[in-house]
Design a protein around this nucleic acid. Structure first.
Lengths: 88, 88
DNA sequence: TAAGATTTGTTCGTATGTATA
DNA sequence: ATATACATACGAACAAATCTT
């Protein structure tokens, strides 16, 4: 993927990263029902800390855009289900 | 737990929080050898910053009332061991 | 059955920057 | 200038679930 992001020093990293991931989901770069890259991969791609990735994931989960299964991965929920909080 | 604390604006937060946690340990609300709530939980319960919780924990550790194991949690030491500084 | 790799969850330690009294 | 207190962000270690070998 060509670099679709760049940090703005005037804003927080987690906020900007949230916008990038949300955009990728909305545009289908991460297709519905498929797995988004693992914490390790995202951490490496963006050059951020693990906890920062988790903070962003936490928000996307609360918005019902993704769903996590421990030991398997994190998956994109279909658009119809967005907004329906997925518990965890 | 019913609210057993309330901030007094004339005194520091960390000092008052120290008294609450010490009281909970002495009264067995946090039983001997059990884990005290995590930094995140205490941070949320008291509505304070992470570093503030850590400052209080630091004192309780120096007094030998609790003991921390990184990656696992913080545990109440039995009363016989209080006063014996537990390194960390 | 057992062992290892992968992945997410949870926890503590540390550092930086900012604001206030 | 010092102490208090917040948010952000890095790292590290331990745990649990899943899958593969």
């Amino acid at each position: 993927m060509s670099q679709d992001w760049e940090w703005d020093q005037d804003r927080t990293i987690w906020e900007q990263m949230y916008e990038v991931l949300r955009s990728r989901i909305e545009q289908g770069i991460y297709p519905s029902r498929s797995a988004v890259p693992s914490l390790d991969r995202l951490q490496q791609e963006f050059g951020v800390a693990r906890v920062t990735v988790q903070k962003v994931m936490r928000i996307l989960k609360d918005e019902g855009m993704i769903k996590t299964i421990v030991g398997k991965g994190t998956f994109v929920r279909p658009p119809e289900e967005w907004g329906q909080s997925s518990d965890r």
